[in-house]
Write a protein that binds this DNA or RNA. Sequence first.
DNA 1: GTGAAAGCGCTAACAC
DNA 2: GTGTTAGCGCTTTCAC
Lengths: 346, 346
Amino acid sequence: MVNIMKSITIYDIAKEAGVSPATVSRILTGSTTVSEEKRQKVQKLIEKYDFRPNAMARGLTVSSSKTIGMLVPDAQNPYYNSVFASCCNAAYEKGYSMLLLNTFSDPAREKEALAKLIEQRVDAVIISGGRCDLAEQGPLSEETLRLISNRCRVVITSYSNYPEFAGICIDHRGCLDLAVDHLISLGHRDIGFVYAGPEYIGTKWKLDRLKEKLESYGLPFRKEWMIESRTYAHRGGRSAAHTIAELDQRPTAVIALNDVLAAGLLQGFHEVRIDVPGEISVIGFDNAYLTDITSPSITSVGYDYDAFGAMVVDYAVGEHAQDQGINLLIPGELVCRDSTDVARRA
Amino acid sequence: MVNIMKSITIYDIAKEAGVSPATVSRILTGSTTVSEEKRQKVQKLIEKYDFRPNAMARGLTVSSSKTIGMLVPDAQNPYYNSVFASCCNAAYEKGYSMLLLNTFSDPAREKEALAKLIEQRVDAVIISGGRCDLAEQGPLSEETLRLISNRCRVVITSYSNYPEFAGICIDHRGCLDLAVDHLISLGHRDIGFVYAGPEYIGTKWKLDRLKEKLESYGLPFRKEWMIESRTYAHRGGRSAAHTIAELDQRPTAVIALNDVLAAGLLQGFHEVRIDVPGEISVIGFDNAYLTDITSPSITSVGYDYDAFGAMVVDYAVGEHAQDQGINLLIPGELVCRDSTDVARRA
DNA sequence: GTGAAAGCGCTAACAC
DNA sequence: GTGTTAGCGCTTTCAC
């Protein structure tokens, strides 16, 4: 579908101003000094016609589109949404625009989307979630590697084992520490964990760290308190709550892999009349906005999404080109709400 | 920042295949038939090098970028996020990519973002929220109009009073009907409403319709049951619940402008020990994912976001070019959950 | 400081 | 069918 009207060009401006197109270009880019007189004249015409230089033409000559592509499994998901939105803002500040493509974690679609971004000649692609989040990142397929290689910068929002990609990753271990330390400071010693997707880095790191940490404190790491859910959705937390309710000995606090599972725990405990935080404390991760609207509100370890986005974009636009393949951690921040309280033994 | 490596072009492919660039182009676009022999040879080379045609170059010659720009007040907001995500998918199906820009409802930023999209030569821009959602849409500023006019198609995700723009709008009146009919079918006669932003179309249409509707049914439309909150956030609903709790005569059901306010009502009623749905029913709009995770879960009138996005994109890519300036309504869908029940008088 | 001209990578006449 | 060529709208040498 073509645009309705042939739009105005620097030639039109140049002719009317009685200067050369090069001069108009110089004014646009500010590359060289131009006599004040001509600058004025040209500027006036630019405003008169609301002239906007064609980014495609410019991109063609300077080999840069000033766009960044982003691949996410599902843009609807609040987490990816947050990351994307913050990247958008950071990109805007740097004069870039963001293109978003959903992959639905489908490898074929992923490849297709990547190809599309390459065609657009994005200056960088940000890959979020999916295979990149696996604890054991398989090698990139030869195809993907070739598609990417030398064509644009790549940063993944996870820990990167790929020498070609920079990784900006949430400090899952540090986040877990924050959660456990908070619970311990409230007197909890019996701590459970509800999680899903142990093959993913965020889960694995937290689980491993929890074990390490509890043992180092001489606290029990009990198998039956570590509940693997089949889903990240709230119903996973809900059924975990029922499981916990039936335990002979229950933990006094449970950590949920994310806020949605934590919300599910709340629902489940509510159903079986276990009071939160009176009888059991609950803490989540991500500090999603839903933490505020539940009853009780949910204590959560979140992150500064804006800082996250800014960091990702910094790498994407190549401000740290020397650090190819490096990994950076985004620290967590504890936000106390009403779902955690001092431990009370039955 | 330039890309690292000069990428391969149709000329390279053509030379190696011993054909002309035009032939390669023909194969790429499928515009004319090409001899099977040459097609094979070229195809092989395309795969060999993972050649991807430069979209900027193509766009420059065909005057179309195959991209759609979208302006939203805040991409973090779940509603805009949903709309954007569904547009993304719909666009993908049609071979378009989406560019997203945040305006933060700031006119200056809005103009800047619009200019940016124009520079990118997007084929269309989708404007969501902000001034477009006002019930009284002021005339477009001369500047904006000039910026847009004849440069690309525009569709707004609201009712459009602008002859230049198509409007795809949620059927707020129909949605309200659905909510009220549901409550009436449960025996409710005393119905309240909690809302914010009466200057916005979604609010105004619902409020007006509620009055109309209750009166037509001979039901009370009581001033003190119509509670205007200063915010769309959950705390608005919470304080509304407290207000309602102190009423001499309370409604048996309350409609909230959106699910977040409904969640706030739940919190508030919980605090003052009013049982939902036992003593009072609550219903929201948008069918956001949070409706499932609250206790009780929230009955809500939602919409088919995918259909919404598909419709918006259809107009954006000009499949209904003849219908410039037309308005279309997206119907609501009632989703019953646990926050509504039969009316019980005290 | 400024203009002429080449070139970015593609498509679309236009010839053959 | 296929090649030649002229743009698309910009930036950027290279002269002057």
